[in-house]
Design a protein around this nucleic acid. Structure first.
Lengths: 223, 223
DNA sequence: CCGCGAAGATTGCAGCAGCATTGCGGAGCT
DNA sequence: AGCTCCGCAATGCTGCTGCAATCTTCGCGG
């Protein structure tokens, strides 16, 4: 792990570097914002520790600058001012955390780790079939990444088929996917849905075909 | 944005819910850890506010439990103890932030936003749709970079839609984005919001349309 | 290869569920 | 007090959806 420390008090900086080193963290140190911009351009840091009060200006002004340059490196602001309003100010311009001096090195380490743990991007699953993409969780269907809207029952049928792409889905399974126990079905409503769904998918140019398996069920495949 | 507040002091909890509400944050409240586990299972919260001292135990013990259950929802610990070592302890078991009482609501909001800021989204431009730009964190909406102000509930609906631009958003999801579980809804209030929101967006000349997906939900797209 | 029956496909129709709109009044804020 | 927001409900309307009638396709046996 590698940090950039922007701090003008040389002694503190050295002490901090040493302490962080014991935690297996490599620290680059600069005293000037001007250098910092250049350093972030050339190096990849896991996080930036930023002092507010610096010889060449207010540290906070550095944050928007950095963000504008496209960096998403977490920034932890270090400061003597620890009043609530001050802290709010820091967080609002895009800092990821705010730490008032004096602090324990252990706390700093813990906060760095906490900040680094955040990236929780859950991937959208989505089933691809032909030029169509089905997201069974969110009930979205897109064709060439433009959304298609389908009536509810047809949508449910399609999702059930997509979830088992290239495999036969029993008639009864499809019915269960579309209807609950109360609403029984006494006609070929399912067939009707399939028919209308086919038409809609054809018009929309999804590259898929719904194939009937006689006496068993249906099957979705690319065409 | 929706938070789960785990806090046994009822008055504080109510005050906090109200204050957060003014910032456009919907808050569910529970006093017991046991309930919290169940509530988080549905995974609809953007963040969890956790008191350390709770009737049925130390709040921190909840964190590993939650993480083990696979939740990566950010957790902010609230506590009266604000000593550095205590804070380290909290961060090390997996909390994302730590806030000592008393605190300003503004600071809490700022920290929630900081925690939610995805390192992946660089510089947070917000979501662009048509000539409209939506910042889901700060709840700003601008059209041609002039800010528009919307009633709170309509704003929340719009943000929820914008976050999933071009994708269907379930009715239930929208309701969850606007109401907490106490304030149930028994009419077409959501529809009314949509209708008024449409009108406002039309008047303002946002280049977007809110499309109804019959029986499923709504969808925001550029027009 | 042909014919037949059964399963599937298609489509008009009618009923109605769900959405859109809007006025009203209460509640909350300034 | 004056304002906006917001929930509620009444109204109108769109189009989904179940049904059934009719046509088509499929598979099998002769």
């Amino acid at each position: 792990m590698r940090l950039l420390l922007i701090e003008d008090e040389k002694e503190l900086a050295i002490a901090l570097s040493g302490a962080l080193g014991k935690h297996g963290i490599v620290t680059d140190h600069t005293m000037h914002l001007a250098d910092a911009v250049e350093l972030t351009r050339q190096n990849v840091y896991d996080a930036i520790l930023l002092d507010r009060r610096l010889p060449d200006g207010e540290g906070l002004t550095f944050i928007p600058e950095l963000r504008r340059a496209g960096t998403d490196t977490p920034i932890i602001v270090l400061t003597a001012r620890n009043e609530p309003m001050e802290r709010v100010e820091g967080l609002n311009v895009g800092a990821d955390d705010y730490l008032g001096k004096p602090f324990l090195v252990e706390e700093l380490v813990a906060r760095v780790r906490a900040v680094l743990r955040r990236p929780s991007s859950l991937a959208e699953p989505g089933i691809v079939a032909g030029r169509m993409m089905v997201d069974p969780l969110n009930l979205n269907v897109t064709i060439d990444s433009t959304p298609i809207d389908l009536p509810r029952r047809e949508l449910l049928v399609l999702v059930a088929l997509a979830k088992r792409k290239d495999k036969t889905v029993l008639r009864s399974t499809l019915e269960a996917a579309v209807y609950n126990y109360e609403e029984e079905i006494q006609s070929n409503a399912l067939d009707a849905h399939i028919s209308r769904l086919r038409k809609r998918l054809l018009d929309a140019g999804a590259g898929v075909a719904i194939h009937a398996i006689r006496g068993v069920g249906y099957l979705l495949r690319e065409e």
